[in-house]
Design a protein around this nucleic acid. Sequence first.
DNA 1: AATGAATGAGGGTTCATTCAT
DNA 2: GATGAATGAACCCTCATTCAT
Lengths: 219, 219, 219, 219
Amino acid sequence: MESLNFQSVLKLRITTILEAEQRKKQILNCAKKLFASRGYYQTQISDIQKAAGVARGTIYQYFKNKDDIFTTLLENLFVEWKCVLSKIPDNNSESYKDGIKFFRYKIKNSFEFFANDPDYCNILLKIGLGLGENYDKIISRFDKQVIELENNYLLAGIKLNRIKPQTDVELASNLIGGAFMRMIYYYGVTKKNREDIDIDQLTDKFVDAYSFGIFIEKS
Amino acid sequence: MESLNFQSVLKLRITTILEAEQRKKQILNCAKKLFASRGYYQTQISDIQKAAGVARGTIYQYFKNKDDIFTTLLENLFVEWKCVLSKIPDNNSESYKDGIKFFRYKIKNSFEFFANDPDYCNILLKIGLGLGENYDKIISRFDKQVIELENNYLLAGIKLNRIKPQTDVELASNLIGGAFMRMIYYYGVTKKNREDIDIDQLTDKFVDAYSFGIFIEKS
Amino acid sequence: MESLNFQSVLKLRITTILEAEQRKKQILNCAKKLFASRGYYQTQISDIQKAAGVARGTIYQYFKNKDDIFTTLLENLFVEWKCVLSKIPDNNSESYKDGIKFFRYKIKNSFEFFANDPDYCNILLKIGLGLGENYDKIISRFDKQVIELENNYLLAGIKLNRIKPQTDVELASNLIGGAFMRMIYYYGVTKKNREDIDIDQLTDKFVDAYSFGIFIEKS
Amino acid sequence: MESLNFQSVLKLRITTILEAEQRKKQILNCAKKLFASRGYYQTQISDIQKAAGVARGTIYQYFKNKDDIFTTLLENLFVEWKCVLSKIPDNNSESYKDGIKFFRYKIKNSFEFFANDPDYCNILLKIGLGLGENYDKIISRFDKQVIELENNYLLAGIKLNRIKPQTDVELASNLIGGAFMRMIYYYGVTKKNREDIDIDQLTDKFVDAYSFGIFIEKS
DNA sequence: AATGAATGAGGGTTCATTCAT
DNA sequence: GATGAATGAACCCTCATTCAT
């Protein structure tokens, strides 16, 4: 049996001061790490609760249920990622005018986003996928957005005569999406020596590989 | 007392073994469908048992536990897939001599394999990934094999002066692997109108997209 | 918002601890009766749960598993019994000086302890024995303590010239221990009319039987 | 999957020749060892079956159920032990006439019986005890027989003026029985160096310890 | 008589969620 | 709001027994 614990009483007081929003974020962060490293079903509410340093019931004051935590996490991921995607280069910059450079700009931003947040990588690419129908809807929203990006880019490219007109846009989007996700997974999660990664250089190579297959060779 | 009869004992034994093998396959098939559609944790032993039309205990005569069923499934997948990968074109055929065509031959075989078995696609690309450390080892075997294929191909290609020598083989392998897996997933699982798929044509496009980005432009 | 109140938190905590201890004892008591009357394997968790009037899961809040309940029970038995054994007669009393009377004092205390707790008798002498290696270690602790008591007594007796010097202490300890355990079992558990038992008188007879076999006849 | 096994076919033929009674004994012997070392519930039918080298179903041709095996074992134990007990010394021998020597003769025979069969010791003293009501009846039969022996001996001894007339026969029987069982358990099962045991000597000491406590000192 | 695959009742345990304090 | 003891549905797995061959 645990002996009386003044620390916990103190903690209680202190945490009361923390805003509810803070508390929710704290729980979410702990859940994120746990889900990312163990998976959805291997992570128990009690693990999250302990990691967050709150009582069991407190979790349920901020989230409807376990599912809700994970869904919130996924949705936050999309919000944050969308925010990154929506960034556009300066009007005057070269990136804005040149199709390849615009593509490169977008790829690099997303790459950076996931490289800095391996937990999100794991949750998106490993955990979320195997959870069945309920989550497929959410995940497929992400999918659609990636594909949409590629799609628009490709169509614009064709219009501007920068991309081979016979390109199968549907397939190409998937190839780019698949290659990109694999890249962020490999360099963001799998790879051990993460210091070695030079995002700038990798992005260049990525874009190159695609560009000079897809783009019309300038004569 | 009927005299013991070696032949009849033998026959019995053989029949039993065949039946047992049959029964195991049956259970495995039912489990495959269920795992593929619902995921590992959403699939109960009782579901598999009902689907296979056997009693609860029967499952445990053929498999040590739930985990064993899934592992067996994954291992079968690798055996079958490896078998497909090991196929080589006729010595005299064009595929054998031309690097691109050899690549195309391999891609197409694997594509066909997974297109014909969407359940395996799901298990490999969705379910297996989220199950944590135990399965990561098995899954990573698959990964290594895919990457090995790409790797060898790329290195050979560089030697033969068909692939740009400055190519980052590590990255390129991942890109091709990621794109390929995404392709089989998209066309094998996600896509609704599966009749429309022309594997031959898609393979061509896939190879094209990569080749003319990676391969040295003939001058 | 009501201000947090250290006192109330403390009180809550203390009450909770007391209640928890109470609850644990309650479960333990029900388990004791059941184990004693039915044996370990015949007693289901659901039986204990029903007897204790708590939900299935509650058991697992207080005990790791079924094994833990039984182990706790055995350990409590030893603690309580050791407490009885450690009692010593008044310095001045006759019991303290006279070897036989000291022996008698110890025997009587233990006899009383087990006679008042037939469930403990059963658990120790019947149930615990058949449970295999895991419990043998615990049970043998009991054995050692009984034997230790006899041993010390015998050795002291030999020194004081009250016990025949040629006595085989190892054997004698076992004989006394076996006879004692049999006695508490017979009079504590087997015997139907338990009111008839006069512990004082039986103890006298027990001591007599041994003394005048082991002790040197006064010349 | 096990490959075809000619050995098993051969074994089948050979064992057919063995009498059914032999087969039953064989199963019983294997069960005895297993029950003795693991306990009743820890021993599975499949263990017995494997140890006996017969098929699962065969067990049920010789025994109604698991319970029946154990009961048969216990009953055999009693038959064999009774047989040992019923032996009487030569009419003319000293053992026959002298109460103490008669007692010694009986004790030694039983001691030898159990010392030679530690499995029976275990089954009787450990396993059988914890199995609850069903077996209590059988076990208590054994108990009664031991006590009967003591009882008769004691009453006869009193008649012959060899035993103190004030002896509490009920208690004394239990003391002797408990001490005896403890002795056979300690020297037959617990003790490591079993070669060191000198049954003759131990029996002497056992009888001595009791005799000179119980028997009237000859003046 | 011998076999061993099939059976399914029944057990222990987990864990998300509730609710009185 | 915060707590954490209590809950009980649900799950995996074991194993004695049956029965068609």
